[in-house]
Design a protein around this nucleic acid. Structure first.
Lengths: 221, 221
DNA sequence: GAATGTGAGTTATAGCTTCTAGCGTAAGCG
DNA sequence: CGCTTACGCTAGAAGCTATAACTCACATTC
């Protein structure tokens, strides 16, 4: 998953055990959620005693932070891979949904309720910026005619033109900034509610809603 | 907050203590999140010993369930109150945001990452239906000219026309169903990311983004 | 090659948590 | 006024995070 290629045997062993711990952690998260993640239980599963695990992760939060970091990294890689062969928002929307459904708990760990003690490392900010760069390129490349179809769009674009410190590329037009932002918030809105089970029993397929929202984005609405 | 008016003195005392427990629970949730909620700590704060609290809530999950139920109830009441004096989506959007910001953890408790084992009581389904009713009325009352501005909208409307078992009112047009759904998902998308802190340090005001999305909804985009 | 240092794993322990069992008591109910 | 019900208590089991102190194997260095 991450942090491989170590030089010395000890460092390699250490990296290997860390990966194994994280694998067990993902299993626990998938079955009982992040709040029920137990270092003790992981250690027992791996055939070693509880405190031994603290050699590899200083505390619970550090393990969770590593998991979140890996998840971010994986999503960013998926985005980059998709952008490789022609980049457009609809394709990224598919990639995002596939990544989310592949492991709902992983998605919710990254974008769901934050754990109280957790502090996002500078690393994740950089990775987010990476993804935003790909997304912005896709949004800038697919300009739409309906962009100025409503009165409020120009005013928000004007606001973003003056509040774009979060945008990696300085040449992206404000409309691309706006489209990137709403790509994020709208698709997350559908995914988040779907994965949290708020659509169950409502009698419609969330995938259809997601597709409609994704289409609306690519068509500039 | 809830379940008041009891007949016998004992029942009244019991209800009173339950409310007091919930108040302390909300305080804890507001400061440290739901995962850090401790029945023991609440009991101590109330001047009684830990296990005494189990007379009022069988376990932790039952307390949390009661909190979620009350939160749902509160949001539905806020929606109903807003709809009292003229109902339109923009007003409901303001109400939703105000409710969310009033207690971010409360919002995340309802709409954030669910605990895997947790099963929502039938009660919340009914309350959701209540809110949806208000929302649908607001959406139906504010039809917009731009509704058919894009090719995908009619197709999604057609889909919803055949998958509307979740809609409380049978007379609402499919376009109102669609607008109610995206009201929910889009605004939740912004709120969820904002409350989880994903916008911090990005240099723009989430309120502006939220307002833009809310305006886009009322203008049919 | 021997001495030294580093790091993994152990048990013991403190302090926290949820939750059960069993007991006394005080209050409401008939 | 007596009986019952439900409240609150202490004790305790089982689990968790995390620290401390110790052993032992491996790696490095002299």
């Amino acid at each position: 998953m991450a942090e491989a290629e170590a030089t010395t045997p000890r460092a390699r062993y250490r990296a290997r055990v860390r990966e194994e711990i994280k694998e067990h952690a993902w299993e626990q998260i998938a079955t009982a959620g992040a709040s029920a993640l137990s270092l003790n239980a992981i250690a027992k599963e791996m055939g070693m005693s509880g405190p031994a695990l603290y050699r590899y992760f200083a505390n619970r939060d550090e393990l969770i932070t590593a998991l979140i970091r890996d998840a971010y990294r994986g999503l960013a890689d998926a985005f980059a891979a998709r952008a490789e062969g022609g980049t457009d928002p609809a394709g990224l929307a598919d990639t995002l949904r596939a990544w989310a459904l592949e492991s709902p708990h992983r998605y919710l760990l990254v974008y769901g309720t934050p754990v109280p003690g957790y502090e996002a490392p500078a690393d994740t900010v950089r990775i987010t910026s990476e993804m935003m760069s790909v997304l912005l390129e896709a949004c800038a490349g697919a300009e739409t005619p309906a962009d100025s179809g409503s009165a409020d769009v120009p005013s928000f674009d004007a606001y973003l033109a003056e509040h774009r410190s979060w945008a990696p590329s300085p040449e992206a037009p404000p409309s691309a900034l706006r489209r990137a932002l709403v790509f994020w918030t709208r698709l997350h809105g559908v995914l988040s509610l779907e994965l949290a089970g708020h659509f169950t029993g409502m009698g419609f397929d969330p995938a259809v809603l997601y597709a409609a929202e994704a289409r609306a984005l690519t068509e500039g609405r």
